[in-house]
C-alpha cells in the first residue's frame, strides 16, 4: 500500500495492510500536524503533492528499505490538501520478523521521504502563510 490521499488516513487500515504471519513486529510512524512553529501558532497546514512522481518515489523508498531489511510488508500513505492541528499527514507501517529492523526501516522511510518525495506544505498562521523550507 503506497498512496497519496485527500481523505483522512485510516491508521488501522494501514497497519492491517502490513500484517503478516512471519512478522514479529509492526512499527508505525504517524506524522501529525503540530500547533506551532518556533513558538508561532499554526492555524492549518496545506499539503500539495506532485501525485504521480510522489507515489513513484515513495514506492522506490519502500523498495530500498526492502533491500536493506527483511521486511515482510510495508505501507506508506501520505495525505494532501488542507489539514488541521492533530491530523495525520503521513502514516508508515513496516512489518519484520524482529523489532530492531522494523524501527530502523521505518525511520529510514520517513527520513528519506522528507528529502526526496515531491510534497510541499504551507503553514497558515493567523497573520500570513509560509511555504516550509522554501527559503534559507
Amino acid at each position: 500500500m503506497v498512496t497519496i490521499t485527500e481523505a483522512p488516513i485510516n491508521t488501522q487500515e494501514v497497519i492491517a495492510a502490513v500484517q503478516a504471519d512471519g512478522a514479529g513486529a509492526i512499527n508505525v510512524f504517524i506524522g501529525t500536524v503540530r500547533n506551532q512553529t518556533q513558538a508561532k501558532p499554526v492555524v492549518q497546514l496545506d499539503f500539495e503533492a506532485y501525485d504521480s512522481m510522489a507515489v513513484k518515489k515513495m514506492q522506490e523508498i519502500a523498495d530500498q528499505a526492502k533491500a536493506k531489511w527483511p521486511i515482510q510488508k510495508v505501507a506508506v500513505v501520505h495525505r494532501k490538501g488542507p489539514l488541521q492541528i492533530g491530523d495525520a499527514a503521513v502514516v508508515i507501517a513496516v512489518s519484520t520478523p524482529h523489532r530492531k529492523a522494523s524501527f530502523e526501516a521505518c525511520e529510514f522511510i520517513i527520513d528519506t521521504l522528507k528529502q526526496v518525495v515531491p510534497i510541499w506544505k504551507k503553514e497558515i498562521f493567523e497573520d500570513g502563510a509560509v511555504w516550509v523550507a522554501a527559503h534559507p
Binding site: Y50, H78, A89, I110, L113, K114, P118, K121
Partner: peptide
C-alpha cells in the same frame, strides 16, 4: 529528478520542483 545536462523533448512531462517538505 533530471540531471543538469539532460536534453529536453516536447513529449517530456516536465515539472519544476522547489524544496520538498513532506511528512
Amino acid at each position: 529528478y533530471a540531471q543538469a545536462e539532460q536534453v529536453l523533448s516536447e513529449q517530456d512531462e516536465i515539472a519544476l520542483i522547489p524544496p520538498v517538505c513532506g511528512g
